[in-house]
Simulated assay, not measured.
Amino acid sequence: MKKGTFMNETEWLDYFETINNYKLTEEETQQSKANGEFIVSEPVAENSQPQV
């Protein structure tokens, strides 16, 4: 993966597991998040409407 490419948590975990044939523990996932290994995206509200 080239430098400057950002993945969200799900994409990063899928990539990690595919490359390493290993599933991270919850603690390891939290450490990866703390290290900035992936971007944390805010959940989008389903019925959100832009305010006019």
Rank of each mutant, 00 (worst) to 15 (best):
N35D: 15
N8T: 06
G36W: 01
N8C: 05
Y15I: 01
E42F: 09
F6T: 09
V44C: 03
P43I: 11
F16M: 00
N47G: 08
N8F: 00
F6Q: 07
A45D: 08
Q30N: 13
K33Q: 14
E42K: 14
T29L: 08
E42Y: 09
Q30T: 11
F16V: 02
K23L: 05
Y22W: 01
A34D: 14
G36Q: 03
V40K: 07
E27W: 05
E11A: 11
E27D: 15
K23H: 12
E17F: 05
L13D: 02
Q49G: 04
S32T: 07
F6R: 06
L24A: 14
A45P: 05
S48K: 04
Q51K: 09
V44A: 11
M1S: 12
E17P: 00
W12T: 00
T5R: 01
N21M: 04
Y15D: 08
T29C: 10
N20G: 05
E9K: 10
V52L: 09
N8P: 01
E26Q: 15
G36F: 03
V52A: 12
E28C: 08
N20R: 08
E46T: 10
N21H: 12
K2Q: 09
K33C: 12
E17T: 12
K33E: 15
I19F: 06
F6N: 06
Q31A: 13
N35Y: 13
